[in-house]
């Protein structure tokens, strides 16, 4: 399992996001056991305390849950994880529009580019 971490952003939310993405896209299935804190720490090359904090935040949102003595599991309900990803997509889209605006494009021009890019695919 690989983790892509941006060095200019806090690590904790990035771990949360990437777990949500994997739940939303079905890579991690409902009620499936997650990797342990230590496994995530080692594979991502990050501090175990940070991973623990990420897991606790996901737990608070009902995205994952812990079972005493056997680790962390994906919640049966994946709606919240999908919502998180949706929010992420929306904020990335906003970023994209900002960048294109900075290049002098107005919103209708940007939409045209997106449309053409799609058809070129």
């Amino acid at each position: 399992m690989s983790w892509k971490l941006d060095k200019t952003r806090p690590i904790c939310p990035q771990i949360c996001e990437q777990i949500c993405v994997r739940i939303a896209n079905g890579e991690f299935k409902p009620n499936e056991r997650l990797m342990s804190v230590r496994e995530v720490a080692v594979t991502a090359g990050v501090n175990p305390n940070t991973v623990q904090k990420s897991f606790e935040q996901l737990d608070a949102k009902g995205i994952i849950y812990s079972v005493r003595g056997s680790g962390w599991f994906v919640s049966a309900e994946t709606v919240t994880a999908k919502d998180e990803v949706d929010q992420l997509v929306r904020s990335k889209t906003a970023d994209y529009f900002d960048q294109m605006n900075a290049l002098g494009m107005d919103n209708s021009e940007i939409k045209q580019y997106v449309k053409e890019w799609n058809t070129n695919e």
Binding site: K7, T8, R9, P10, I11, C12, N47, T50
Partner: peptide, 9 residues
């Protein structure tokens, strides 16, 4: 580390 990244970007 996360405080530094958060506060300073």
């Amino acid at each position: 580390v996360d405080e530094i990244r958060e506060e300073n970007g």
